[in-house]
Structure formats: structure tokens, C-alpha cells
């Protein structure tokens, strides 16, 4: 079996006294779509940001294509970032730029493509997520939440990255728009032949976009397997989570009146 595209071993991170990741292990094989599920505050976003280098993990190993990246900084980090595309939970579109400039940003700033050429690519990518040329000249504030998410997806795939991260891609969207976004994610990842790592607590989304699912709890991966096996995982934590039960081994910190 070939080396995984992303390999995490013993990754740990804490903020003050709060331990968020405690020796997390995870493999993401090449061209596979892995979705990490888990409750709020279990360390999903921190894990993603540690891989991206936005947060520095205190211990452990983070390998991308077999290369250790945990302490990579400066130009090597910039070069490494070219492999990545990222869809942020809130879109994170740049308010001061028009829609097409947002999509073309990585091409112009990261790959030094000419603005005119980059605009052409941006329009192609916008079309790929179902948005027309009229939208390209608008500012992000003029778009609905679903359209912003699609623009953010177009920006994430514009540089045709090898690895795409999706942070809660359907949060805040209605069920129909969520399904549209899920379909677009599946299609874009397949067309690019990319490796995808998503985090979500939306089970419908996870079932649709994942080849494999892993569950994170208290900063560790406690189960992983093919998406078809999640209903028969035999793991009480996974069962409680996918069935949305308050009773079970996962205790929410809720103070009773």
C-alpha cells in the first residue's frame, strides 16, 4: 500500500490548561475523501489548522506526501501551501475585492498569473460552481450565504490543488443548498483528482461526500472506516453521535437548572 497523502501521528495541541488534541493519529490516502465528524469543541477545526500550519502543533508528526511539515515556515511553507485549497466555514471571502478577484486571488498572488488570464480562469471556476459572469463583478456582501459558499468553493479549487480541506461546508445553509454544495464538492474533488479532508457534524453531508469517515472525540480519532460501515460501527460513541442521542458515553457539559 502506498504512503498516505496526509499522515498525522501523535499530534497534540493545548491552549493554556485546555487540551484540544491529545496524540491524534490519522491517515488520508491519496485521492480519497475523508470526513472527520465529531461534536463541537472536540478539536476538528484545530486539527485542520494544524495541518495547514495556521496553528502550530506542540507535539507529534504531520506529514504531507511523506514530508514532515509541522515546523515548516517561510518560503517552504508558502510552497507547501500551493498544494492546498481550503473552504472556510464562513467563506472568508475578502470584502474589499470583487467576486472574480476573490476566486483569482491565489492565481494572481500565489502563482503570479496576469490579471486578465486569472480572470478567465476565475470565470471558468465560477461557472463550474453554477455562477454566471454577472456575479463575478459583484462584491461578496451582495451575495446570499449559499452563493458565498459557492464562490468560496470556486476560490478553493481555482489553483487546482492536490489536497482540499472543507471546514463545515454546509453549516448555516438550508437543506437544499446544502445538497447543492455537497454535490459540487463531490464533483470538484472528482474532476481535480484531489485528496479531500472535510470536517463536519452534518451527517447527511458526511455520507454524501465521504469515501471514509473518522470520528474525533476528546482530541483523538476513536473510530474510522468506510462510509457504508458507519451505521454498524459497533462503537457506542459513533452510534450516539449519528443517532443524535443525549444519553450515551458522550457527556455534554450542560448545567441543569
Amino acid at each position: 500500500m502506498s504512503d498516505p497523502k496526509i499522515r498525522l501521528r501523535g499530534v497534540s495541541k493545548q491552549f493554556g490548561p485546555k487540551v484540544v488534541l491529545s496524540g491524534l493519529d490519522l491517515d488520508v490516502p491519496e485521492r480519497e475523501s475523508l470526513v472527520v465528524i465529531g461534536g463541537s469543541g472536540t478539536g476538528k477545526s484545530v486539527m485542520l489548522k494544524c495541518i495547514l500550519g495556521l496553528i502550530h502543533a506542540e507535539a507529534g508528526s504531520i506529514q504531507v506526501d511523506g514530508e514532515e511539515t509541522r515546523d515548516v515556515r517561510g518560503r517552504r511553507r508558502t510552497k507547501l501551501m500551493r498544494k492546498f485549497g481550503m473552504l472556510f466555514q464562513g467563506g472568508a471571502l475578502f470584502d474589499s475585492l470583487r467576486v472574480w478577484e476573490n476566486v483569482a486571488f491565489g492565481l494572481i498572488q500565489g502563482e503570479h498569473m496576469k490579471r486578465r488570464d486569472a480572470k478567465g480562469v476565475a470565470l471558468e471556476k465560477l461557472a463550474a460552481v453554477g455562477l454566471g459572469e454577472a456575479v463575478a463583478e459583484l462584491s461578496p456582501a451582495e451575495l446570499s450565504g449559499g452563493m458565498q459558499k459557492r464562490v468560496a468553493l470556486a476560490r478553493a479549487i481555482a489553483t487546482e490543488p492536490e489536497i482540499i480541506f472543507f471546514d463545515e461546508p454546509t453549516t448555516g445553509l438550508d437543506p437544499i443548498m446544502s445538497d447543492v454544495i455537497n454535490d459540487l464538492i463531490v464533483q470538484c474533488v472528482r474532476d481535480l483528482g484531489a485528496t479531500a479532508l472535510s470536517i463536519t457534524h452534518d451527517l447527511a453531508s458526511a455520507r454524501k461526500i465521504a469515501d471514509r469517515i473518522a470520528m474525533i472525540h476528546q482530541g483523538r480519532i476513536i473510530w474510522s472506516g468506510p462510509v457504508a460501515e458507519i451505521d454498524d460501527s459497533g462503537n457506542p460513541y459513533v452510534d450516539q453521535f449519528i443517532n443524535g442521542r443525549a444519553e450515551g458515553p458522550i457527556h455534554m457539559e450542560v448545567r441543569r437548572p
Binding site: 508558502t78 481550503m86 464562513g90 486571488f105 476560490r155
Partner: peptide
């Protein structure tokens, strides 16, 4: 505002150094 809406993180993921930009 860019910080709290993750736009600065987005800059980094688009191979652009926020300090420079």
C-alpha cells in the same frame, strides 16, 4: 474584522503572507 472572519487565515492558505499583504 479580517482576523475574526478567518480572512487572514484564508490569505495564508492562498500562499500570501498576511504581513506582506
Amino acid at each position: 474584522t479580517m482576523r475574526v472572519t478567518e480572512q487572514i487565515d484564508a490569505l495564508t492558505t492562498l500562499s500570501t503572507h498576511p504581513m506582506k499583504y
